[in-house]
Write a protein that binds this DNA or RNA. Structure first.
Lengths: 258, 258
DNA sequence: AAATGTGAAAGGTTTCACAGCT
DNA sequence: AGCTGTGAAACCTTTCACATTT
């Protein structure tokens, strides 16, 4: 127990696969661009190319939403924009709070992608009293003390955490207690949340590490049959190598009590 | 043709599944924290809890790396830190360039996660001549003209794109032409790259949209058996609703010519 | 003729459950 | 007794290929 969950089993009622849901925003973006050029219809082949996927996948994805295309013709751009927006819940607008207005928080606040498309930055919150009142992206920063009040009076259900790792779990707990049920976490920590709360994580150093893995493989590729078995040899020797780096991952690591 | 690729088929030689690779950094972070507390060994159960996964998955993941545990005991923390670091290629250091030193680029430059663990910010690059020479995170910003020179003279193989969407493909092309083979893309655009180049994408608005989808489902859940079939009804009516929003996704959308 | 929508096959990932080692 | 390592089962995702519709 106590481990909580991580995703959701899948989706309820209409059962759209999670992998499909994750691609809908991609399609929507490509469609929006087409819509602005007043392109009336698009084939699965064209749209797939614009979204960076293959057409069979796209058609399968759309088939979960319903039959919105016309055989021999393609998809009506405006209609699809509407259907996907609705499916994603973007026809209503979602007030969002951003907690932690450091470099990253400020960047997020200024990011246009929030403002357009259904999301509205309802408040910026920071623990530093010196930040209070300062305008960032045209919005005054409020102190953490106000957190519960802000969430409740604005009916916020989506929170963005851009604090140092050490503060993230605390902030998360307060957000959840105040009624937030979806969290986008930029802090390099595993958040523990009750059932029914969704967490998505964006982690820069993880992405870089994945790239490094593949990069290493590429390098080894022309170097002959190296990169072979890990050779479970000198344990003692290896153990000595490690040595503590201070500040393991940018901020306080704060691993679960568990 | 022209569509390029997106991931890699899987992995070469040792064949570690992609899903496992994506979790190694998570394990590494948890292990590093344990290492700092001088915890000598850890069970799959404990480590899994700290990393936010279940223990069967963790054991399966580790089994692809080799047999690094001791039955009845658990895993040696230091030894595992070393093995995972090595597997991820973090025992060498990777010079990285960040292109686009706006709000986000500056946040990335200041993010400690880069500096620690094998990544070194070799240069910050921006197209704005007014930025040139300004120190950000203790590093002087250089002009885009220098890009090729910087890449080549530093042997950079990993690039981070934090430019507006409209500039991203151009920057990407130049990075690739200069020798970069791994790209972390923060711009909300699909990048087209030649085979052999890896791209990973971090997209704030996509993450938010996925959260909104689930959030919407939650709301419908107590409202009875609503959120039912999409009801493929009035197309004309729906199409009228859309209407262009200016600035579709924060920045110039720049969809592929394709 | 062109392009969708979809069963069925193939491939990948997670979970189970237990044999095997310490 | 305790915990790892792993085949086998269950599940999810992608791709194939083609019947169906306009």
């Amino acid at each position: 127990m106590a481990t909580g969950r991580t995703h959701r089993p899948a989706t309820r009622s209409r059962g759209i696969p999670e992998a499909t849901v994750a691609r809908l925003p991609l399609y929507l973006r490509a469609l929006t661009a087409l819509s602005e050029r007043s392109v009336p219809t698009v084939s699965s082949e064209e749209l797939a190319a614009a979204a960076g996927v293959n057409s069979a996948k796209l058609r399968k994805d759309f088939s979960y939403l319903g039959s919105y295309g016309t055989r021999g013709v393609g998809y009506d751009v405006e209609y699809l924009v509407y259907q996907i927006s609705r499916e994603l819940g973007l026809t209503q607008d979602w007030p969002v709070v951003i907690v932690g207005i450091g470099n990253l928080g400020a960047a997020l606040a200024n990011y246009g992608g929030f403002a357009s498309r259904g999301f509205r930055v309802a408040a910026l919150i920071d623990a530093d009293p010196a930040m209070a009142g300062k305008p960032v992206a045209g919005i005054g920063v409020q102190h953490t003390d106000e957190l519960e009040h802000i969430i409740e009076s604005n009916g916020v259900s989506i929170g963005v955490i851009a604090t140092p790792a050490g503060a993230a779990q605390q902030v998360c707990d307060r957000l959840v207690a105040a009624g937030v049920t979806s969290i986008l976490n930029f802090a390099p920590t595993v958040l523990t949340v009750p059932d029914g709360v969704d967490v998505r994580k964006v982690d820069l150093s993880i992405e870089l590490q994945i790239l490094a893995f593949h990069e290493q493989r590429k390098a080894g590729e022309d170097g002959g049959p190296d990169g072979g078995p890990p050779s479970p040899a000198a344990r003692a020797a290896a153990a000595a190598v490690t040595g503590h780096r201070k500040g393991p991952d940018g901020d306080v690591p704060a691993v679960m009590p568990a």
